[in-house]
């Protein structure tokens, strides 16, 4: 859950308007996805990772965030190397079967892997430099339906509450040998998740009562964004143009 809470508030990127950061990120993301090759993606990944390093993210959080994408890159690379292409690169025997690596597969695998790394690190820059309510306000500015943003805000707020609740129940079950064997584990997990849903029902009733008493009419007020600064607009235009030129090359 610590992954959800990290925000580099001291970094210069944190001072830029969330709408500009979101817009630039989405434009560069589309460039990354539509680029046919590796160099642009590797460049975006390198720039993003440099920015992340400058935000002084704790190493543990960094590794936690990137562990799953790296694993997926590895599996995709293996699948592509050994099952795509015609031009053999090398081959070896494993459990009596001959595995052959192909040159085209390696190229495709590296292209997909670099695309994943670029996209993941780009998103990480956005998230580490923007607090969640500001990000939601930026999504609202992009005309994402308000109802959906409200659901996101409720979910984000209650993830921590319900997670704590889940941990209390989990510890109580564990202390009573609820996870001693596979059968117990299954039954305890069912009770744990069922209790979470019961809690969610009860909390939603309490929450709506409290909100109605404070004038809730079915729509939540969102974070109010300040007007754009000309320097921010200039910087974003510069970044997008530079990236566009690199993408075209």
């Amino acid at each position: 859950m610590h992954l959800l809470e990290y925000y580099a508030s001291d970094h210069w990127l944190a001072r830029i308007d969330a709408r500009i950061k979101l817009l630039v990120t989405l434009i560069v993301l589309i460039m990354v996805l539509s680029y046919q090759g590796v160099s642009f993606q590797l460049l975006v990944a390198a720039l993003s990772l440099t920015l992340i390093m400058s935000m002084k993210i704790p190493w543990r959080l960094f590794l936690l965030r990137f562990s799953e994408p790296l694993l997926i890159v590895l599996v995709v690379l293996l699948l592509k190397i050994f099952f795509s292409g015609h031009d053999p690169l090398f081959s070896f025997d494993i459990l009596g079967f001959q595995l052959t690596a192909y040159r085209e597969g390696l190229a495709e695998g590296v292209a997909i892997g670099s695309r994943i790394m670029a996209a993941i690190s780009l998103m990480a820059v956005l998230v580490y430099a923007t607090p969640f309510p500001e990000l939601m306000a930026a999504l609202s500015w992009l005309k994402i339906p308000r109802g959906f943003i409200e659901i996101l805000l409720y979910a984000y707020r209650y993830i921590f509450v319900l997670f704590e609740e889940a941990m209390v129940i989990y510890q109580a079950q564990k202390n009573r040998l609820g996870y001693a064997n596979f059968r117990n584990r299954l039954s305890s997990f069912g009770v744990l998740t069922g209790s979470l849903i019961l809690k969610a029902f009860e909390q939603s009733q309490t929450l709506s009562t409290a909100m109605v008493q404070r004038g809730y009419d079915g729509n939540m007020p969102l974070f109010q964004s300040r007007p754009f600064r000309s320097s921010e607009i200039f910087l974003s235009c510069l970044v997008v143009t530079a990236m566009g030129i690199l993408w075209r090359i």
């Binding site: 109802g147 409200e150 659901i151 996101l152 805000l153 409720y154 979910a155 984000y156 707020r157 209650y158 993830i159 509450v161 319900l162 997670f163 889940a166 998740t193 979470l196 849903i197 969610a200 029902f201 909390q203 939603s204 009733q205 929450l207 709506s208 009562t209 909100m211 109605v212 809730y216 079915g218």
Partner: peptide, 21 residues
Amino acid sequence: SQEDLSFKPLVGLMAAVVFII
């Protein structure tokens, strides 16, 4: 949610539960 004001918070909390599960 127009019929029942508690429906939207409920859906939000269900999203939190799905996230945790």
